[in-house]
Amino acid sequence: MLERLGLMPTQASTVSGDVDALYLSLVGLSLVFSLGIAAALAYFAIAYRRRSEAHEAEQIHGSLALELVWSIIPFTIAMGIFIWGASLFVTLKRPPDNALEIFAVGKQWMWKLQHLEGRREINALHIPVGRPVKVTLTSEDVIHSFFVPAFRVKQDAVPGRYSTVWFEATKTGSFHLFCAEYCGTEHSGMIGTVTVMEPDDYQDWLSAEMAGGMAGTAQGDDPLSVAAAGGELFRGLGCHTCHRQTAGALGPSLTELFGSQVSLRGGRTVLADEAYLRESIVDPRAKLVDGYQPVMPTFQGQVSEEGLMQLVAYIKSLAAEQDS
């Protein structure tokens, strides 16, 4: 309805309807309260306006009963909204396990996106309809924010960190992709498009060679998958010389690392997720694995954010191979 009134962008993801329903009930609630208060204000202003010099106001100092009523009712409503909002927040925060993975890096003033299979895009994202998509975000410079109004999602891309956002498109077509966080002089022009395609078309698109005129696909003619590119980088940087499976290797083996609990020096354990892997590459001494010496140099500045994402994808793929 709102869409037709031109008040809200198209609903094009599985959560859009839920977000809009919550939004609309807040609008309803606001209308009840603001119109109620406005009506009371107007009524009092007219009914109790000054009529004559002799008229005296009533002596009302307060009322405990009324104070309780107008404390408890707003409190109850607030808690009700909280429970509704929190349950929707759970959905927004937890990407489904079968989500398609996309890596995105923001920089002044563009979005650089990478599909697992290796296809790269700038300010454009192609995704299949009806399949959850999880975007892992970071930034090369300042904070950007990944915003697709039609999907009702927004997530900051913070330098030095990974954040994720997920959505499942419900209709095909093109939708706007923006940077919502002010990011410098040309922030206003950091505009992209999300193209939602039928799954078959998406497969064709993924395997298509160098789609003509598509900005940002000017990588090699035969793009490597992200994990394979990470593997090349892994060997190129010489990571494999220490991270071997043999006894006495200087670094821990990475084959079953992703998703496992790692015991750190000092007795703590940490979940080996994307953020942990990234941190261990750029700041190896932050979380030392128990039983190893702090001998790894930092790769801060030697690997681009996209390269880091490729390395992470490679290490993830090692664990996936073990599972299968």
């Binding site: 208060i37 009092f44 109790y48 307060g62 404390s71 909280f82």
Partner: peptide, 29 residues
């Protein structure tokens, strides 16, 4: 989220008390 929701309550109390102040008054505009 919950703390922010709760802070709406004292603000609501103040608003209703202002309305209560007008109630039965002899209002000069």
């Amino acid at each position: 989220m919950i703390t922010t929701m709760v802070i709406a309550v004292p603000s609501a109390i103040k608003t209703f008390n202002w309305l209560g102040t007008l109630w039965g008054g002899n209002i000069h505009f």
